[in-house]
Design a protein around this nucleic acid. Structure first.
Lengths: 205, 205
DNA sequence: ACAGTATGTTAGTAAGTACTCGCTAACATA
DNA sequence: TATGTTAGCGAGTACTTACTAACATACTGT
């Protein structure tokens, strides 16, 4: 995680970005709740005190992580959602894009769950909740498109379908947590996608 | 959570059980990682030091919670899995039984996720992982039964179907975390179940 | 050349953390 | 009644946490 061999002085922006990535890297290996400012400092090769040169407090770091997440994930999903004229194919593309993103950033699901667990409506939780809301909105949009093209059952409940979609991804994440790695779930993932599409698709003649 | 109005002396077993319930109750309101022995002591009306009269250390408390969970959830699922001769109906019954259990014990999903997040193979994580393994086994059994009765698609991948089943429940749990309560997701839950069954069911006529 | 500022270190603080210890009172039983 | 056990309290222990203050040094604009 060390961005430089020599501990050169770096601008605040670079340090902030490095810390955000460090948090995600650490979250891949341990509970987000147990990540300390000392851990973060060590990960980027700085003293613990220096952390507070670039963030006013710890919560601001988490806020930054949430912002990075929203700015990275949503465009990815949005692009996949419009990647073809076929809505069902687009759902598959979102599914695969999401899985790949999570595979490359294993700390992300833990971070999200960590925040949602918080009972208080902290700004960070609100940010994450808002992102998931928008994620669901994208899904519902694609599902409505599918309904308009009559490729799904005409009485489809989009909200339930969106919940099942996100749940199917979560089930895979959980599976990988049990297995300890993402490597072994690839075939299961494809199987789950097939089942999901079958659950909403209109039977063809 | 207080089992007695007057802080009477109670046998160790009763205190242990009370602490397990206290942990689950606290987990419904805060992150499991942030539950302290002081919190637990307060919840059952004891001094913090007294906690260690009944448990050798904190991990032993979590271990007890995991054991309670396994001993409570699995029989519930097992019963639902055999509740009728119709495998598909039984899947629905498992689904509803699980949801009701989670609704009555909102701390449970948080506890499970908290343990799975742990990278080290602590005894507690192994216990939880084992329970989920057995849960999946029960599901796969019902799915195989359904296949034998030819009420699902003949080439169904049971492992994917079990993953999607658990995922569908997780999606609902996540939805309720976003909403802040379980109350509002009842209709969505039924919709999700309908979709799930559609994903595996063989088309009739 | 040099003042000002941004970035860094080291060494603190107060508030928590799990866990222990000496002691006491309730209970069981010989 | 004497003796041993169990369950409790309250005040400690050593350690960790987020955050701060005092001081040092590289970079920048004039």
């Amino acid at each position: 995680m060390n961005t430089a061999v020599f501990p050169t002085r770096q601008p605040a922006e670079a340090r902030q970005a490095a810390m955000v990535q460090a948090v995600l890297a650490l979250a891949a290996q341990q509970e987000p709740a147990s990540i300390t400012t000392t851990d973060i400092a060590k990960a980027i090769g700085l003293s613990q005190g220096a952390v507070f040169r670039h963030f006013p407090n710890k919560q601001a770091i988490w806020q930054s992580v949430a912002e990075w997440l929203e700015a990275t994930l949503l465009p990815l999903i949005q692009t996949a959602a419009q990647s073809s004229p076929d809505p069902l194919a687009n759902l598959g593309n979102i599914f695969r894009a999401h899985l790949q993103f999570v595979q490359e950033n294993p700390g992300v699901p833990r971070f999200i769950f960590h925040e949602l667990q918080q009972p208080a409506d902290s700004p960070v939780k609100q940010q994450v909740a808002g992102m998931l809301q928008r994620y669901g909105g994208i899904l519902i949009g694609v599902l409505q498109q599918a309904k308009a093209q009559a490729v799904v059952v005409p009485n489809l409940d989009e909200r339930s379908a969106a919940t099942l979609f996100i749940g199917s991804l979560q089930g895979l994440v959980m599976q990988s947590m049990l297995a300890g790695s993402f490597a072994s779930i690839q075939p299961v993932a494809e199987g789950v996608l097939v089942l999901y599409l079958r659950s909403i698709r209109k039977e063809v003649g």
